[in-house]
């Protein structure tokens, strides 16, 4: 599982360093996926039943990381949406999504 986390981080890092704005947004999303999986993995996989108390099981998987990840998923949705909006608007204004062309003046 850790390998999956590693791969998603790797792809995410590679993508955010690309030139196209779309790649950057996708890369960001991949990084988010990676960290969610990382959190889940850290908590230990398959240590018990789903964290629902009204079932007969007595061992549960850890509810806290799940709550954290739930929060993280929603937040990352907000961030992704925001970056998409920025990318979209940037393209509308400048007619390019190439980060090289979007560079500001060197003295900024």
């Amino acid at each position: 599982m850790s390998i999956v986390v590693g791969v998603s981080f790797m792809v995410g890092t590679y993508l955010i360093m690309a030139r196209s704005l779309l790649s950057v947004v996708i890369g960001l999303n991949m990084l988010a996926h990676g960290s969610h999986l990382l959190l889940l993995t850290m908590a230990g996989l398959k240590t018990g039943a789903p964290p629902l108390l009204d079932r007969p099981e007595t061992a549960f998987s850890d509810p806290l990381p799940q709550a954290l990840i739930l929060t993280a998923i929603v937040i990352s949705f907000g961030i992704t949406a925001f970056t998409i909006a920025i990318a979209y608007r940037t393209y509308k204004v400048y007619q390019t999504d190439d980060l090289e062309q979007l560079r500001g003046s060197p003295d900024e």
Binding site: Q66, L70, I73
Partner: peptide, 11 residues
């Protein structure tokens, strides 16, 4: 698969 139904739904 990892026993997190809430997460699966949200995701």
């Amino acid at each position: 698969n990892f026993r997190a139904p809430d997460l699966a739904l949200t995701q």
